[in-house]
Design a binder for these strands. Structure first.
Lengths: 346, 346
DNA sequence: CTGAAAGCGCTTACAG
DNA sequence: CTGAAAGCGCTTACAG
């Protein structure tokens, strides 16, 4: 009669139940969960199995309360409209839920990104996820050393000197796509660099490597620059449309730029891909909402974010063994209708 | 020597200190904090004063843990590519972080959405956020009563009979947009219903109400149906293009459908908006990535998700006073170039 | 390497 | 109306 029933909302699986099933103490479960190296491999396996079987999810509130800290991962985003934000959040959320961390998000002001990063870093969080182009901005500004929390870059266009990152290999992606174009017979290729972002340089190197293998070069006059937004693409495409001699294929820096090219080329009286082939980058939704649909490079952003979050959690837990490495995630070349089988004969 | 020092991260003010200063028990502080009516006015004042003096902030983690562990909110999504997912996650994340709840996400299989909802609901979560079209599917299937957790619909196209919801008023939005068209002189208006989704019916009512006020009617032959995706829009637009007599303005059911219309109308030799005006719905990114940019209706999804999450948390905490109400969030008519100043003179 | 015990800051259920 | 006690699910610090 001394027991007091307590409302228990649900069949929530607790650490005790996992411990029970695995035949260990809750301490050991906790150690496994926190990746403490001291646990014997066989026990660890048993615990992980039990967690899996029971579909165990750590209770963030309890963890936060008990550990008095280190449970918050921050993610800064610029804009809710961003087509890639959903995928990044999904990945980050999965990894943080798995480890019982809480994901805290905040938008930043494009006119003072670094200030916002600094303010966010000092006040409320234990680790920071940096999407592009923030990761590059932070890295180039050199403020990362002053920010005293671990951070990691998501899909930067190049390796960062002072911040670890998870990314696709842009150089290889550009190389492969260029190779595809060469195989289809294209020789005169146009390339759109992205300003500021290092991706421009990295991809450019890949394009040049592929061309060099075929004894070709990328002509200076076919290297342009545009911000990766539709409007900038429109302006550039307009200019290209008026050129006397054009490339037979164009590697746009983003799907938005590519979509703008497709649009302008039509208005210009050119057929895509018969007269000119267009390649995008990112495989965002617009890639299949225009005609012809874009051949493009897909970055698996959800996976990138998930891996980056896992890595960040490791860094938060073991600050000493924090190395500045890069994790590569495989990209995918998506072939659709915007690249012709053969180039225009000139 | 029996005391064990415990790391205490900061100079956090606890409830005990407030209770101490106010000369009451922690229980009373808690009661004041939770607005329990039973506390005597003078004590309440003393407690509030102490809280203020010490700058007391309740610890959300402790509160979540103590209040019986109801801390998980689930969100089901179909696809990482969804342009609206980012906004929904941002809103849901903000509200859940504020109350110390955890957001758990999971993707569902389009071929068996109801099974996935049921499985998710029974196993791991305390409340469920239902984005469209899931909220409508769940409501129409009638399974909500069997699912024993609170849930709420995000931006359904109509009020749901058995599930509370946060949404814009589609009828009014459709009314306002139609009104806009009427003001610009349009009389022959085409309308695209979305199949399955109730939005079709609800918006149709708004369109008809506006037309009726001008003594006009929506002609049967100008009411079509299409799924809210680009491809379906293409097929429908093709059909419309071949009609002998066309409306001067079309209310597409989504931006994707509208974008498809714009595309096909061009190929059809018609100018948008001079020959035909097109109105989208949702204000997704594609709205400004085509030419002309779409006049459309914006649903503030981040705000909708945030409000819905707050409401859901209330429902989880007070299951008894759970009413099936609807919270309306203001929408916004975004005027861009796809609607002409005046209709074609026929 | 492992686990029994204490404690994180709050709320619930109860007795007064 | 009020408060002493138990408990939420986890981690820390310690002893074995």
């Amino acid at each position: 009669m001394t027991k007091r029933p307590r409302r228990r909302s649900k069949n929530v699986v607790t650490m005790a139940e996992v411990a029970n099933l695995a035949g260990v103490s809750t301490m050991t479960v906790s150690n496994v969960l926190n990746n403490k190296p001291s646990v014997l491999p066989e026990r660890r396996r048993a615990v992980l199995e039990a967690m899996d079987k029971l579909n165990y999810r750590p209770n963030v509130a309890a963890r936060a309360l008990a550990s008095a800290g280190s449970i918050r991962i921050g993610l800064l985003y610029r804009d809710v409209e961003n087509a890639l934000l959903g995928a990044m959040l999904v990945g980050a959320l999965k990894a943080s839920a798995r480890f019982g961390f809480q994901l805290i998000i905040r938008s930043y002001d494009e006119t003072k990104p670094l200030d916002d990063v600094a303010a966010f870093a000092v006040s409320e969080i234990d680790g920071l996820l940096l999407p592009p182009p923030l990761c590059e901005l932070v890295s180039f500004s050199g403020i990362s050393a002053k920010l005293s929390i671990p951070m990691i870059g998501l899909a930067p266009g190049t390796n960062l000197s002072d911040i670890p990152a998870v990314r696709i290999d842009d150089e290889v992606a550009a190389y492969e796509v260029t190779h595809l174009l060469l195989e289809k017979g294209h020789r005169r290729i146009g390339f759109v660099k992205l300003p500021g972002a290092m991706v421009g340089q990295t991809r450019l190197a890949g394009v040049q490597r592929a061309l060099a293998e075929h004894g070709e070069v990328l002509e200076e006059r076919f290297i342009w620059e545009a911000r990766p937004i539709y409007e900038a693409g429109l302006a550039l495409a307009d200019m290209v449309c008026k050129m006397e001699e054009r490339p037979t294929a164009i590697l746009a820096g983003s799907d938005d730029i590519a979509a703008a090219f497709v649009n302008v080329m039509h208005r210009c009286g050119l057929h895509v891909p018969e007269d000119i082939s267009i390649v995008g980058f990112d495989d965002t939704p617009i890639a299949v909402k225009i005609w012809p649909a874009l051949t493009t490079v897909r970055q698996p952003l959800a996976r990138i974010a998930e891996q980056a979050t896992e890595r960040l959690i490791q860094m938060i837990r073991n600050p000493e063994q924090y190395t500045n490495d890069v994790i590569y995630i495989p990209h995918e070349i998506i072939q659709r209708a915007s690249v012709s089988e053969r180039p225009l004969q000139d």
